[in-house]
Each structure stands twice: as structure tokens, then as C-alpha cells.
Computed example of a mutant assay.
Amino acid sequence: MKIVIVTAGLTQPSSTRLLADRLTDAVTRQLEADVRVIELRDLAVDIANNFVTGFPNGRLREAIEAVTEADGLIAVTPIFSGSYSGLFKSFFDVIENTALAGKPVLIAATGGTARHSLALEHALRPLFAYLRAVVVPTAVYAAAEDWGGASDTFTDGLGPRIARAAEELAGLLRHRGPRAETKEEVVPFEEQLAALRPLS
């Protein structure tokens, strides 16, 4: 079982990565899995170059392959101006819109105030629905005050939300089983161009 964590935190350390780590720990307590973390901050220039050139470089291609070949995803973004970060959206824009079809995804976000928690429902969930992923019912939002350990009956605490979302993702992964390995022959771009040139 392969799980890939995509985190779009901009600082190091970041609350976004902290939330991603807590979600990962909760999921791996439910099932055994190989885990890989992709820090989008490290790929920001590569993603921008992909938009300009139309092609991913080696590092970005490897990250995209890790995401598309994973059995499940945990996707975590900071919330800016009431929505996901531009870096987060840009990364998923360079992935083929059918590549995540049927893939279980746990969505999560961090922000300074609980007022932005609905961004998970009006921004992240529709994004992954468009990509045809299967998003778990519980989305996890962590506001600044959640890190103090306090909880109340209205928010039900960060810990229980993490546990519930992790259980839902683990259940989907167990039901779906490991992704079948498929080998696809890749024709280098140079060969594809050569085939288009008229014969002299």
C-alpha cells in the first residue's frame, strides 16, 4: 500500500506539514503503508517552469508519478484569501485530469482562524471531485487555536477529527486494495518529434 502526502506549506517548519504528519500517523496506525511526503515548496520553480514549457522536468515528473501511482493521497494546504494556496492548485493543474480517478483522498487545511474552515467544502472538495478522486467524508481543518490542545463541543477537537478522517481513508484503502502495477511504454519526446518531421 502506497500513500503520498502532498503538503503546500511555505515555511519550515509549518503548521501545514505538522497537520500532514499527524494525519499520516493516524492513518498508518490503521494500516501498513509505504509513505512518501511531497513538499510543494521545494517544487515551486519546477511547477512554474512546467506552465511555461509545457513539460515537467525530472523532479516534478517524479512527484507527479508518485501521486498518480499512489493507492491513496493526503492533501494539505494552507488557506489564503478563503481558498487553497496558488502553489497547491498549480501542482494539481499540471496533473492529467483523469490521473486521480477513483483514488481515495483525505483533504485537510490550516489557517489562522476557524472562519476559513468552509474552504475545504467550497474549494478543495470540488477540486478533487473534478479530478474524479474519492474524497473521504471528514475533511480536517486546523485553525491556530487548535494547536493549543483545547477543544469544545462545537468543534469536537482536532484529535478526534484527525482520527475519524484517518479511519475513513484507511477503510477506503482496505476496501480498494493495493493499486495494480501497470507498465506503460513511454516514447521519448525526441522520438515523437522525429516521427512528425517530413522525410527528405
Rank of each mutant, 00 (worst) to 15 (best):
G148R: 09
P160H: 00
D146R: 08
Q30T: 00
A99T: 06
D25T: 15
A101C: 02
L199H: 10
A8M: 05
L43C: 09
I95R: 07
T7H: 00
Q12T: 15
E191S: 15
E145N: 12
V105D: 01
R41A: 15
D42M: 14
F80A: 05
A108C: 07
T28G: 03
E121L: 09
I47S: 12
K103S: 08
A163V: 14
I74N: 08
V37W: 06
I79A: 09
I107L: 11
A166Y: 07
G177E: 10
A142E: 00
E65T: 13
G177P: 00
G82D: 02
N57F: 07
I95P: 04
R29N: 13
E69C: 08
P13Y: 11
L60Q: 14
A66Y: 11
E65R: 10
Q30A: 02
V37D: 06
A123P: 03
G82W: 02
E32A: 03
G112C: 03
T110N: 05
V186F: 05
A26F: 02
W147D: 12
L40S: 02
V140F: 07
T113A: 09
A163I: 12
G159L: 00
P198I: 06
P104K: 14
L73Y: 07
A101N: 09
D71L: 07
R29M: 13
L73V: 01
G86K: 02
A133R: 04
N57V: 09
L31F: 02
R174Q: 15
T138M: 08
D42T: 15
F88G: 03
T182D: 10
V52M: 12
I95D: 03
L127F: 06
I74H: 05
L120V: 07
A123R: 01
L172A: 10
A63M: 03
T77I: 11
F154C: 07
D46G: 00
H116I: 10
G157H: 04
A33F: 01
L40V: 05
V27P: 08
F154Y: 08
A163N: 14
K2T: 00
A195S: 13
D146C: 07
V140H: 10
V136P: 01
Q12L: 13
G86D: 05
L18D: 05
P160K: 04
E190M: 14
I64D: 05
I5D: 10
N50Y: 13
S15V: 11
F55M: 13
R179P: 02
G177H: 11
G72C: 08
A163P: 11
L193V: 12
N57W: 01
E62R: 01
A99D: 11
G148Y: 09
E145P: 02
G72Y: 13
R59C: 13
A180F: 12
T24V: 09
G112H: 02
A109W: 05
F88W: 08
R132D: 03
R61I: 05
I79N: 07
E190K: 14
V136M: 07
T155V: 04
P188T: 06
R164H: 12
L193A: 01
F55V: 15
K2M: 07
